[in-house]
Write a protein that binds this DNA or RNA. Structure first.
Lengths: 214, 214
DNA sequence: AATCCTGTTGATCATATGATCTATAAAAGT
DNA sequence: ACTTTTATAGATCATATGATCAACAGGATT
């Protein structure tokens, strides 16, 4: 043995992760790590494994969350909340700008938010589990984003072709699928995701005879 | 108590599920039910619950599969196998037919195969779990379906616009997303899925200046 | 420096879960 | 009818897992 005393603050322990944190801070720390953890291994991840990652006892988790389900609920809220900015409906319907510009702005920002491993995977896990928040989110998305997009498209569409909701879902799905490929199936991302999005939007608009400057 | 003897073949037991089946038959029965079961509850479904569904002891499962992972592997094989018919590459590149006809035929048949709850959910669960078969399938799909579609599109594209692989993935993703919405997120299906597919294909073709008769 | 509050640990419980093994009984062979 | 074979059940094991609780110790207050 070397001369070091062994009453040590174990050197393996992260210096930044000091013990005895204020409750709110600890709670956030737990939720943050839980998001990463459950996103990786799925919602059946074990509390002991999560605790190990946190460098904390498994029993501590139950000091902050009465049950594992409560913890998962907190993960859902952390992940789902503020993912749909309240400003978008207005911006999507701001007819002082061409629809193309509006759609590109929306999907560029939105994809930056959702093409993220944690979000994509938690969303998928929770969807498969039939979580209520998942349904609410999709309903909300349909109402505040997709339906306005439909209305804007219909207003500008020229020719006999009129969009229906299925067309909007197709646009949306084609774009979201980029993130699914990357984060769920772990395929390599496109060279230029923004370019891919732009082409998807252009394909969509041109199908309804809407020009870039419309 | 009533007068019935209790040595009964329990009336609850399904008459069709007679005991002591020939091994191959029993094995298939187990895999078939396992597909439904794991598709519903996820790959962390418990062997005891599966056995209960089968009206069989939990220990019997381990007579047919050494481990639970082996059973899941059998589920994967059952589900993944024969999902990509070997005839499609030839049919997709058969230039005696318009590309539109070929694409519609493919996606109509393909969607009939994959817009199925068991497939969709097992595919997603296995993708999230990082299963090797999932990667292989997607690689295969890219090689035998999407790449030929790219080549066919490129051959017919008029104007400056040339398709790249991302465009094909976008077409594909937009269509597959119909199934994801329906079976993963449990949203109501489109009124007419085939019509939705046709519009997706038409949108795609028209973007590259390909006419229906090309 | 002594005291108090409470965030954290360590031991532990009850149950769940994958897996094993022997006894049973259904069918096939003779 | 008797024997043999083997598919299946039932009991059981070892470990994993969510959850509980008393005891400890960090750090603020006095």
């Amino acid at each position: 043995m070397d001369g070091r005393t062994d009453r040590a603050q174990t050197p393996a322990e992260d210096a930044a992760t000091r013990r005895r944190l204020p409750p709110e801070e600890r709670r956030q720390q737990i939720v943050d790590e839980a998001v990463r953890f459950f996103a990786e291994v799925g919602l059946d991840g074990k509390t002991r494994d999560l605790a190990k990652r946190l460098g904390v006892t498994q029993s501590l988790l139950f000091n902050y969350f009465a049950t594992k389900d409560d913890l998962i609920e907190a993960v859902y809220e952390k992940v789902y909340l503020d993912r749909l900015s309240p400003g978008w409906p207005d911006r999507l319907t701001d007819r002082s700008l061409p629809l193309r510009v509006r759609l590109l702005a929306f999907y560029t920002e939105y994809s930056a938010l959702i093409f993220e491993r944690e979000w994509m995977r938690i969303f998928m896990f929770s969807g498969l589990a039939g979580a209520a928040l998942n349904h609410r989110y999709l309903k909300h998305l349909g109402e505040v984003i997709l339906r306005p997009v439909l209305a804007e498209t219909a207003a500008l569409a020229r020719g006999a072709r009129q969009p229906d909701m299925e067309d909007i879902w197709n646009l949306h799905g084609g774009i979201v699928y980029v993130g699914i490929r990357q984060h769920i199936y772990r395929m390599p991302p496109p060279d230029d995701p923004d370019a891919a999005i732009a082409r998807a939007v252009d394909k969509y608009l041109s199908y309804f005879g809407i020009r870039p400057e419309d």
